[in-house]
């Protein structure tokens, strides 16, 4: 769970890195089966991190401090 703005920043950077990796994979992996399987881990991790970001941003700072 994201606890503060610094962790938010790190998570957003990591999402961007994963997205760039998948975009690169999509252009370099010529085998569709390889692509789908290799991308699955990165896409699952992107989904998980985006949910964390959404949960963090859905709370006001005063609420974050009381729930962590």
């Amino acid at each position: 769970m994201i606890a503060n703005d610094q962790e938010l920043k790190v998570t957003l950077e990591r999402i961007a890195r994963f997205q760039a990796q998948v975009a690169h994979l999509r252009n370099t992996e010529s085998n569709p089966a390889n692509y789908h399987a290799a991308a699955s881990g990165f896409l699952a991790e992107i989904d998980r991190m985006q949910l964390e970001v959404r949960e963090y941003l859905s709370l006001h700072p005063q609420e974050v401090s009381t729930t962590t």
Partner: peptide, 27 residues
């Protein structure tokens, strides 16, 4: 097991950074 994998040619921007970027959920 949480498994990430790539063919080496698809590592971006480098093998080192691809692996580093995938590291754990735990910070």
């Amino acid at each position: 097991a949480s498994v990430f994998w790539l063919r080496r040619l698809s590592a971006f921007p480098s093998e080192q950074e691809a692996v580093a970027g995938s590291r754990a959920k735990e910070r």
